[in-house]
Design a protein around this nucleic acid. Structure first.
Lengths: 345, 345
DNA sequence: GATCCACGGGTGACCGATCACAATTCTCGG
DNA sequence: CCGAGAATTGTGATCGGTCACCCGTGGATC
C-alpha cells in the first residue's frame, strides 16, 4: 500500500510512450538499445522511464520473446556441503549474468516424483542444472525432455559418445587416488574405505581411485563399507571397523562421514592418528577445526557450480562469454588426522 | 532435439481446442475445473490434453492472471546451517503448494546492491521471504516496496506497532536463557559469551537471554566476545578467553562458533568439559558427533521456514490453509561438552 | 528534378493464457 | 408447443512486451 491506500499499477511501455509522446515501439527500442533512435528522442523516453519508474515486466518479456533468463537447479539436497556450495557457485554466476535462480528439490528418487520436479523446472523456461550425485539426480538428468537446455553436475562422466556433453565434474578419481597414496606413503599396509552412496550402480570414481592406489601399491583391498551421506552413517560403519585391530587407515567418502568415523574411533578408544589415520573428502569448512583436524582432499565445488552455469549460459545465448571451466584440481590437505601407523609391539 | 531433429512446440490451449473440437475457452474451463462444462465435453478435452501432452504455460498464466505462484527467498547466505535449513523448510512447503522457489543472495549489505536484489525478487512476481538475520537481510526487508507480499524471518520481532506483522522468529532469548541457566546450574560462577554478529545495532535476543540468566543468578556479566559466523571467529575469540583461568563456561552464538571454541581450548591445553564447559546454539547436524559432543540448544529452522511460507501463502491466496505456525520451542540438548567447573585446588 | 536509400519511427499481429460478456443450447413449467 | 431461465459454449479484448513490416522524411546521386 502506498500513501493513497492503493497500490499503483506498474507503468507499462505504453504509459511511458504516452508520457514521452512517442509510440510504444520506440520505447521498446530505447529499452533494448536499438541504434536507430534519435538521441533527442532517446533522452525524452529515458526521462519518462525515470519519472514513471518504469521497469520492464519480466513475465511479458518472457512470453513475447521466449527468453527467460532463468536457471533452475534440480538437486536432492540443499544443505550438504558439496550440494550447497555448487548451488552457491551457480547462484553467483547467475546473478552476475542477471539470471534468476530457481531451485527444485528432489525429495524422492521415485520416478513419478522426479518427473514432476523436472516438469516444474521445465515449465519455468530457461535452463536447468541438475546435480546428479545421487540416484534421484541421475534420474532427473535423464528425464529432462530433449530440447531443454540442461547441464549436469555429475559424479563422473559417462563415456562421451561423440561430441561434448553438457556435463561438469571434479576429478574424484584422482582425488581419492591422492588421498589413498598419502595414507599408504605413511606406511599403512592398506586403507579402508567408508563410501558415500554411488549415484549409479557402477563403481564410483572415488572408489575407483582408492582401488587404483591400493592396486598400484600391491596393498590388499578390503571391502568398502557403506556409510550414507551423514555422520551417523560414518559412525555406524566405523564402530565395526574399530573392532578390527588391523585397521590403521580409513578413507571416507566425505567429511561428514569422517566426522562420524572420528567419533566412533574415539568411542572405541582408538586414538587418531596414533592408532588409526583418517582422511576425509571435500574439505568442508568445519574440517580444519575438528580435533584432530581432518586430513582431506579439497574440491572446488563453487567453481564447479560456476562452470555449470557458464556452460548453460553458453547454450542459452550466442553472445555468452565462452569462458573455459576454471575448476581447480583436487588438492590434498594434510592435517592432524593422518600419520604413520603404530609400530608393532 | 527429438528424433526428427527439431523441437516440436509445446501444444497450446488452442491446439487442444482444435483437437477436441471446442473453443479455447472451454479448454481453459476444463483446465481450471470450472463446473459448467458438460461431462462428455470435459472428457473429450481431457483426452486431447492427454494426447497432445498439453501443459499450461506458466508464463502466459502469470501474465494473464497476475498470479505467479512463486516465492523468492532473499538471504545473505545459503550454506550456513540455519539459513540453509530455513530455505529447506520454505522449499518443502512451497513445493507442496505447487509454488516455484527462487533465491537471491545478498552478497553485500551495500544499499545499492540490496536494492538491486530486492528489485529482481520483486520482478519475479509472487511473494518474498527475507531472511533478516544480518544487516543485509534487515536492509532488504526494509527495501521491499509497499504492496509486495513479504514475510521476514527475523532475529527478534521489533515492537509490533499494532496489527500482526508478517514476521516469523524463534525464541532466541529463551533459548539463550535456558543454555545459560544450564551452565550456571552446573556450578559455574558465570558464563562467557561468544556472539554472532547482530542483525542490527541493538542487543540481540541471544545476548539478552544470556544476560537475563546471569542477572537473575547474580552472576558477574563479562563482556561478550565477537565471533562472526564461522569456526574461525570462534577460534580466535576463544584463544583469548583460554588465557584467563577464571573462564570456566562459554556459551556460543552458534554451533560453528562453538566448534572453533572447542578447537582453541584444545590448542590451549584446556580440557572440555573438565576445565571449561562449552555450549553451542542451533544443534547443527555435526554437533552430536564432535569430540566432545556439543551441548547446545536445538532450534526448529525448517519449521520456521515452513511457517514463513505458510504466512506468505495466506497473504497471497484467500483459499490458502491458515495453519498456525508449528515452530517447535527451543530445546536444550545436553551432551558431553558441559559439566561442573573444576574444583579449586 | 526524379530516384534511391538510410534513418527514424509507427502499426498490427502475436506469445498463451484469462476475463467479461454475448450467444447458443437445454430443460421444464404453463 | 412456446418462452423463461439455467446450463454450456463461443467471441473479443487484454496482460505487457516483441517481431515483422510499412511509411514518411531527407540528403546524396545521377
Amino acid at each position: 500500500m502506498n500513501v493513497t491506500g492503493h497500490t499503483k499499477r506498474q507503468a507499462s511501455i505504453r504509459d511511458v510512450a504516452t508520457a514521452a509522446g512517442v509510440s510504444y515501439q520506440t520505447v521498446s527500442r530505447v529499452i533494448n538499445g536499438h541504434p536507430s533512435v534519435r538521441p533527442s528522442t532517446r533522452e525524452r523516453v529515458q526521462a519518462a522511464i525515470e519519472e514513471l519508474g518504469f521497469r520492464r515486466n519480466a513475465t511479458a518479456l518472457a512470453l513475447a520473446s521466449g527468453r527467460t533468463r532463468t536457471v533452475t537447479v534440480l538437486t536432492a539436497n540443499t544443505t550438504h556441503y558439496g550440494y550447497a556450495s555448487i548451488l552457491q557457485g551457480i547462484e553467483e554466476s547467475a546473478r552476475a549474468a542477471s539470471y534468476a535462480v530457481g531451485i527444485g528439490v528432489l525429495e524422492s528418487a521415485d520416478d513419478a516424483a522426479v518427473a514432476a520436479e523436472v516438469q516444474r523446472a521445465t515449465d519455468a523456461g530457461g535452463g536447468i542444472v541438475v546435480i546428479a550425485y545421487d540416484p534421484a539426480g541421475v534420474r532427473a538428468l535423464g528425464a529432462v525432455p530433449a530440447g531443454v537446455p540442461v547441464v549436469g553436475v555429475v559424479e563422473t562422466p559417462a563415456s562421451p559418445p561423440g561430441g561434448e556433453s553438457p556435463w561438469v565434474w571434479t576429478d574424484d578419481r584422482e582425488a581419492a587416488y591422492q588421498a589413498t597414496r598419502h595414507l599408504l606413503s605413511l606406511g599403512h599396509e592398506t586403507v579402508h574405505y567408508v563410501a558415500i552412496p554411488s549415484s549409479t550402480r557402477r563403481t564410483s570414481a572415488r572408489t575407483a581411485g582408492w582401488r587404483q592406489a591400493l592396486k598400484e601399491a600391491g596393498a590388499p583391498e578390503p571391502r568398502p563399507a557403506q556409510g550414507g551421506w551423514g555422520p551417523a552413517g560414518g559412525h555406524a560403519a566405523a564402530l565395526k571397523l574399530a573392532r578390527d585391530p588391523s585397521v590403521t587407515a580409513i578413507l571416507c567418502g566425505n567429511d561428514d562421514l569422517a566426522l562420524g568415523v572420528l567419533r566412533a574411533l574415539h568411542e572405541s578408544g582408538r586414538s587418531v592418528p596414533g592408532e588409526v589415520s583418517v582422511a576425509g573428502f571435500d574439505d568442508a569448512p568445519h574440517s580444519a577445526f575438528l580435533t584432530p583436524s581432518l586430513t582431506t582432499v579439497r574440491l572446488d565445488f563453487t567453481g564447479l557450480g560456476r562452470a555449470a552455469f557458464a556452460l548453460l549460459h553458453g547454450a542459452l545465448e550466442e553472445s555468452a562469454p565462452v569462458a573455459p571451466h576454471p575448476v581447480s584440481e583436487p588438492e590434498l590437505v594434510v592435517r592432524e588426522s593422518s600419520g604413520p601407523p603404530p609400530t608393532r609391539a
